[in-house]
């Protein structure tokens, strides 16, 4: 039981970190950014290239990954989202294609074989009978720091409040003097940075592979749909529900069913409470 609690807490922290950037874009940019997984993938590979292949310090590798993630987010907004503004389907298709192009590009550069990212912080500690790596502990701590910082930023800064305003009513925000285009661009940049940061931890916890972008996107979609639009707290809580659900299913039922109950949960929430457990109703 304690093993489930420990592993559930750690996995949930990682999921929350991964889903946060996706939630921002979905809430503020109103875009189902299917290329979000590309940030995660590029973040992981960039860290691998800088720190593991070039031998640079891990901090440089991490900052490089986050910077490239933010840059890709900004470019995506400028080159794809803005020109296609108003056509949600076209944006979704374009982002999906972009994710696939990123996948093919990484195959060309790094090859098709999976790679193992060394832990950012090596070492293991036994907690309540479960083997816990310092790496996943760091990921959880980092995820909480980032989430709290994001919460403070959104609640306590002018730009953050502007992001909230745009997420609620873009036209109303514009009338109030907020530049929605600028806010959207900042959001895409932050989302890219968050995705890349999550990618470094996710890859070091699991693996690096050109197909690794899909699983985090599914997890993010699940968390955001169940949590609801525009809720950092909702994202955090649902990340924990899904994380614990997965760990419990593996431990108690069968490993093959790991993602199945999550899917059932999505369908259930879509039917019973379309705005999500913690989301506001859209008008």
């Amino acid at each position: 039981m304690m093993q489930i609690i420990v592993q559930g807490l750690l996995l949930s922290g990682l999921y929350a970190l991964i889903a946060m950037g996706f939630m921002l874009i979905f809430s503020i940019g109103r875009t189902l950014n299917l290329a979000y997984g590309a940030y995660i993938m590029v973040g992981g590979y960039m860290y691998f290239w800088l720190s593991q292949q070039l031998g640079m310090p891990q901090v440089i590798g991490f900052l490089g990954a986050v910077s490239v993630g933010a840059l890709i987010g900004l470019l995506k907004h400028r080159l794809i989202v803005k020109p296609l503004k108003g056509d949600a389907v076209a944006v979704e298709i374009a982002t999906l294609i972009l994710a696939l192009i990123t996948q093919f590009a990484l195959v060309l550069i790094f090859g098709d074989a999976s790679k193992i990212l060394l832990p950012l912080i090596p070492g293991v500690v036994t907690v309540a009978g479960a083997q816990v790596t310092y790496n996943i502990l760091a990921a959880t701590v980092m995820s909480w720091i980032i989430i709290l910082a994001l919460y403070a930023f959104v609640r306590g800064t002018h730009t953050g409040r502007a992001m909230q305003a745009v997420s609620m009513d873009e036209k109303g925000a514009a009338i109030s003097g907020i530049d929605p285009d600028r806010i959207n661009m900042i959001t895409w940049g932050i989302s890219g940075a968050l995705g890349a940061a999550g990618g470094v931890f996710f890859a070091s916890y699991t693996q690096l592979s050109p197909q690794m972008w899909l699983a985090p996107v599914i997890i993010s979609v699940a968390i955001v749909i169940v949590g609801g639009i525009g809720s950092i707290i909702g994202t955090l809580i649902v990340a924990h529900i899904i994380g614990f659900l997965e760990i419990t299913v593996v431990a108690v039922l069968a490993p093959e069913l790991r993602g199945v109950l999550t899917m059932v949960l999505i369908i259930g929430v879509l039917i019973m409470r379309p705005q999500g457990l913690f989301g506001r109703e859209e008008h």
């Binding site: 592993q7 996995l11 009978g129 083997q131 693996q207 490993p255 093959e256 790991r258």
Partner: peptide, 14 residues
Amino acid sequence: TYDVGTVDFAPLFS
């Protein structure tokens, strides 16, 4: 038994 797409083996090892 685990799915070939499994990337998190921590709960399986537990």
